[in-house]
């Protein structure tokens, strides 16, 4: 099952709303499980068992380990553990969107929705560039590892700045080169055409989309009532 990008965006905003609004951990677990279920429905490889496990570990730390360990440690760990835990619905949503949505669908849907062409291209390129960026980062890291560029520099500040330069500059250079080459390829294929392109990958919203939207609105409404009226 693949949902529409619009459904995903609504789902994202609403789950973020729930995440910041809701303070009942049982409700939160329910949301996480519902999102996991949605991930499982969305095809192979979308659901990441390790991510769910991490959530479980965070819960365990907060509710079982914090009460029994010295407070000094709790003071150190409380903020990151709790913040990441309560942000988890958003993380689950982002994983769901990133793994199931193709650039072509985003472009087609946004074009149909009359989002400005510039914004559409920029968003499409940003999504497409994420894996390239990761790859570039890995290459630079490996090259640095072989090179041992900071050997022999003892001053820690000089060392740090050299290190940053060695990572940042190749990254920037390759970002600029990549965007130039991408542009050349894109304009020889008519990206600057003023007319409305064919949106082959556009699909109208289906029943599943409306169900998911209604459900997520329902859950959000429940969170609001639960927070402000019941308690």
């Amino acid at each position: 099952m693949r949902l529409d990008i619009r459904t995903y965006l609504i789902l994202l905003v609403l789950s973020a709303t729930c995440a910041s609004l809701n303070t009942h951990v049982l409700v939160e677990i329910g949301i996480i499980l519902a999102l996991s279920f949605l991930q499982l429905l969305s095809g192979k490889g979308v659901f990441m068992p390790r991510l769910l496990l991490l959530y479980g570990v965070l819960l365990l730390i907060q509710y079982q380990i914090f009460p029994v360990i010295p407070e000094v440690v709790v003071l150190l760990l409380s903020l990151p553990v709790v913040n990441i835990r309560s942000f988890f619905p958003v993380i689950m949503c982002v994983v769901l969107i990133y793994k199931t949505t193709q650039v072509s669908q985003v472009v087609a849907t946004f074009t149909k929705m009359k989002v400005s062409k510039g914004a559409t291209i920029a968003i499409a390129i940003a999504i497409r560039y994420i894996p390239s960026l990761a790859e570039e980062w890995r290459h630079i890291k490996e090259a640095m590892w072989v090179r041992r560029a900071t050997v022999g520099i003892h001053n820690p500040i000089v060392r740090l700045s050299k290190c940053i330069e060695c990572y940042l500059v190749p990254l920037l250079i390759s970002a600029i080169k990549t965007s130039d080459e991408l542009s050349a390829a894109a304009i020889t294929r008519g990206i600057d055409s003023p007319g409305m392109p064919t949106c082959r990958k556009y699909r109208p919203m289906g029943a599943a989309d409306y169900i998911v939207i209604l459900l997520s609105i329902g859950v959000t409404a429940f969170c609001v009532v639960n927070e402000y009226i019941l308690t």
Partner: peptide, 16 residues
């Protein structure tokens, strides 16, 4: 420009 092969191949015609 795209992440899937199919749309990548049709990109030119879609722009036309």
């Amino acid at each position: 420009f795209n992440t899937d092969a199919e749309s990548e191949m049709t990109f030119g015609l879609e722009n036309q």
